[in-house]
Simulated scan of single mutants.
Amino acid sequence: MRNKLLLLVGAAAGYVLGARAGRERYDQIADQASKAWGNPKVQETVEQVKAKAPELGQKVSDQAKATADEVKAKVTGHESTDADGTYENPTGSLDGDGEATVDATGFGPGGEKLP
């Protein structure tokens, strides 16, 4: 409760101070940001990042594919969905007409079927 109160007090103080600063302060901040963005060193860094972006993007993509392949290899069982809408996994299937078939032999009470 104390944290929420502090957050509300901080937000209220920020609002009041921001409202008092008004348009002049906003314009000052915008001018400073524009000057910083126009700085040659900043633009040089931006260009370097742009040049490296495709390479880094490819690395991220390759790593994501490798991770997906690892996860895929860890998944057990058999599941498939065909283009006609049929679906099959170890517990049953669904045909293209929406008719389900369930393999109930592994369900229900029984010593050999309990974990």
Rank of each mutant, 00 (worst) to 15 (best):
M1C: 12
R2E: 15
K4N: 10
L6T: 14
L8Q: 14
G10A: 13
L17A: 13
G18E: 06
G18N: 05
G18H: 03
G18L: 05
R20H: 04
A21Q: 08
G22F: 13
R23P: 05
D27S: 10
Q28T: 06
I29N: 14
A30N: 12
S34G: 15
A36K: 11
W37G: 00
P40T: 03
K41N: 07
E44M: 06
V49Y: 08
K50D: 12
K50L: 13
K50F: 02
K52H: 10
P54C: 06
P54H: 02
E55N: 04
E55H: 11
L56W: 04
G57C: 00
Q58H: 08
K59F: 02
V60C: 01
S61C: 00
Q63E: 07
A64T: 15
A66H: 07
T67E: 12
D69C: 08
E70M: 08
V71S: 07
K72S: 14
A73W: 03
A73R: 08
H78Q: 06
S80D: 13
T81Q: 10
D82G: 04
A83H: 07
D84P: 03
T86W: 03
Y87I: 02
E88D: 14
E88I: 04
S93H: 05
S93C: 06
D95C: 09
G96A: 15
G96T: 12
D97Q: 14
G98Y: 14
G98L: 06
T101M: 00
V102E: 10
V102S: 07
D103W: 03
D103Y: 00
T105R: 09
T105L: 04
F107S: 01
G108F: 03
P109G: 03
G110I: 10
G111R: 00
E112L: 05
P115V: 05
